[in-house]
């Protein structure tokens, strides 16, 4: 009996996994059943978790807390928040759906204003700074590195001398490529097109290699579950 209870759920997981893979052969009822179980379970899960993790702790608990602490204004502000949030539900009818613009307008507006500075710092200023100097403060275009290479001409010294300049020139090329991508006869823009593509292609190649790796890992994970975890459970339970 105990063997059944330890084995039951992991075996369900294995069967469902295999049911999904039958789709690789062709679409079939087994796959469809598994897919529809998934849809149902995921929505059911959202309902349960939303109640326990949003409505209760984020709305009901703070509002009652504010009321019992005598901070009525805050409590009312929270209730207004809840009411505006409820307006999202107006989307179910075409007649009233414009009401959902209120919560959308507030959230979109607030975060648009709020994120300008952080985006500037994260994506632009810190990245530009890193194109001028390394995190340790050394300059990216450090001529001393070339001096070091001529003193001691090894591959390692050569690479560390040219890496900084490659990054600096590469970033400039890519920026020119994207900002002047429309037809442009400027000599700098035209001349930079091919080299920019070289940098981009090397980068995208690396990016593709990583993406491929990630996709394969997902499949490996499932096989790992069947051929390591499940088999282990099977042999320990049945073997005593």
């Amino acid at each position: 009996m105990e063997a059944i209870s330890t084995l039951f759920w992991p075996t369900v997981a294995v069967l469902l996994t295999l049911a999904i893979y039958t789709f690789l052969w062709e679409d079939n009822p087994i796959y469809k059943v598994a897919e529809h179980i998934f849809t149902g379970v995921s929505v059911g899960y959202m309902i349960a978790q939303s109640w326990h993790n949003i409505i209760m702790p984020k709305l009901i608990v703070p509002t009652t807390n504010y009321f019992s602490n005598g901070r009525y204004l805050l409590a009312i502000y929270f209730i207004i928040g809840g009411l505006i949030g409820l307006l999202y539900l107006s989307r179910f009818s075409e007649k009233t759906s414009w009401l959902s613009r209120y919560p959308i307008a507030i959230t979109v507006g607030f975060y648009a204003g709020f994120k300008i500075v952080p985006i500037w710092m994260t994506n632009v200023s810190k990245q530009l700074n890193a194109t001028i100097q390394y995190p340790n403060g050394d300059s990216m275009l450090n001529l001393k590195m070339f001096g070091k290479f001529f003193d001691n001409p090894t591959w390692g010294n050569f690479i560390s001398a040219i890496n900084g300049p490659i990054i600096v020139i590469g970033v400039l090329l890519v920026l020119i490529y994207f900002f002047f991508s429309f037809s442009n006869d400027n000599i700098v823009v035209r001349a930079s097109r091919k080299p920019a593509l070289v940098v981009l292609m090397l980068g995208f190649g690396g990016s593709f290699g990583y993406t491929f790796m990630a996709r394969i890992s997902l499949f490996i994970g499932r096989m790992n579950y069947i051929f390591s975890d499940w088999i282990e459970i099977l042999t320990t339970t049945l073997g005593g």
Binding site: T122, K126, A130, P135, G206, Y210, M213, A214, R215, S217
Partner: peptide, 26 residues
Amino acid sequence: TTAVNAAKFYAYAASGQFTGMIAGLK
């Protein structure tokens, strides 16, 4: 991070914004 996003994050790792990076299964 998963390897899919790693290529982009290399730029942040090189600038020192990320203190190190663990990318993909590897």
